[in-house]
Simulated assay, not measured.
Amino acid sequence: MRRVVLCGWVLVLCCGCAGAGAADEGRGPGVPKGLTAEAGSATSVHVMWNAVPGAKEYEVYRGTTKVADVPGSSHMHDVTRLEPSTAYAFTVRARDGEGRLGPRSAEVRATTPAAVAADRAAPTRPGAATGRTAGSRAVQLSWTASTDDRKVVSYEVFQSGTKIHSVGGGQTATVVTGLRPGTRYSFTVRARDAADNLSPDSAAVRLTTAAGADEGLDTAPTAFRATSRTAGGAYYVVLSWVAPRVDGVVTEYQIQLDGQPATTLVWGGAPPEGTATYEFYVGREAGEEHRVRLRARLPDGTWGAFSATRGVTTGGP
């Protein structure tokens, strides 16, 4: 396997590498990708990252200080006891079952909002909570905004009473992935203000994921297109797509060409907003027909569903 950096992508050239992205034998775990930090209140920040295959534990750092050990089954943590109106930097490292500590993630920053003196008024209950299943492993939740005498800073999503995620105060929808097929779940949402006042729970949203082993249809990349390009007597397939909408950041994709894994792409920096593009070499013969599709590695570490399959002919449109 060989890694090449091209225009922000880290390209992993594979030969039958269906398992690309897993921790290599004899090496420590990989770098946590897709790290985000969102202020949850004037004294807390919610840090979230993409799961690292093979990780048994994560270490969360505020600056150079380790603030938490998180089990490998989770990939988020609320850093508390912070100062209001203060900028903080966070990183994460993964540790595998043999105790090997992987490299530090890229640094992300978040600034806590100002504290509001004598604010004891909680936000109103999030309204009209609803949801729908997205195949067997994901659900989409939405709600109407809460109101507060100051400002709603964040919304917290709970699964059967356990907090599983937090989103910014301007967001009123999210996608939860990493669920089990044919399983009944109950979700609620709370609003939090800068003074750490929590609203009452929203109405419970009860959903049962579909039976079977599908990867969650709404976890597939959308608007997928494939065309051919010629340069210097060689032919390239040009791809474009929109990342699936999931909690966290999608940084890795697998391209399948003619039914076989062709390449695994890892975004080397912040993924683009909107449409992503990529092209790769397929040969020097005109008129060859190919079928191509791709899928994303979701923030929970699992592969999402494949996009639609597109046909493309070298030398054609």
Rank of each mutant, 00 (worst) to 15 (best):
G99Q: 11
V246P: 00
T230Q: 15
P123Y: 04
S142P: 05
V31I: 14
P272L: 03
P29V: 12
V12C: 13
A210H: 11
T43Y: 13
Y281M: 08
T124P: 07
A128I: 11
G169E: 03
A194K: 07
E289D: 14
Y185L: 01
S74Q: 15
V237K: 07
E107P: 03
A210V: 08
D119I: 06
P272G: 03
A270S: 14
R284A: 14
G72V: 02
D247A: 15
A122L: 07
G97P: 12
Y236T: 03
L239T: 00
A117H: 10
E285T: 12
I164Y: 02
A110R: 09
A18I: 12
R229M: 11
A203V: 05
R190S: 05
A296Y: 01
R109K: 14
T251V: 07
R120M: 13
V246K: 05
Y253D: 06
P84L: 01
T222N: 01
V153G: 02
W267N: 11
S166F: 07
L141W: 01
V205L: 03
Y253H: 07
Q159E: 15
K56M: 11
T133D: 01
K33I: 12
G301A: 01
Q254Y: 04
A110I: 10
G268H: 02
E215R: 14
R190Y: 03
G232T: 04
Q140N: 10
A276D: 03
R93V: 04
R150Y: 14
Q254T: 04
T36Y: 05
S73Q: 13
T264C: 13
D214I: 00
T172I: 08
G283A: 08
T277E: 11
G131L: 05
Y58R: 01
V312I: 10
H290R: 08
T86H: 12
T177G: 11
A18C: 15
T314K: 00
S202A: 02
V266A: 13
V79I: 09
G99A: 10
H77W: 15
Y278S: 08
W267P: 01
E107S: 10
T130K: 14
K66R: 15
V92H: 05
G26I: 05
A296K: 05
D196V: 11
G97Y: 13
S44N: 03
G161Q: 11
R27P: 02
C14S: 14
G135Y: 08
V238Y: 04
R184W: 04
T111P: 02
L35S: 07
V266L: 12
T64R: 15
V152T: 08
V10T: 10
L217G: 15
S199L: 04
S160K: 14
G212D: 06
D218M: 08
P271Q: 01
R150F: 12
A243H: 01
S136W: 03
V67W: 08
A210P: 10
P261F: 00
A118C: 14
G8Y: 02
A37G: 12
P271R: 00
A128R: 15
T177M: 11
W49Q: 06
L179A: 04
Y235F: 10
R125V: 13
D78L: 13
A145Y: 06
E83N: 15
H46Q: 08
W9F: 10
R225E: 06
P299D: 08
A106H: 13
V31T: 14
R95N: 06
V312Q: 07
N50V: 09
P299H: 01
A191E: 00
G316L: 09
R125P: 06
E25C: 07
D24S: 14
L198R: 13
V31D: 11
S142Q: 15
N50Y: 06
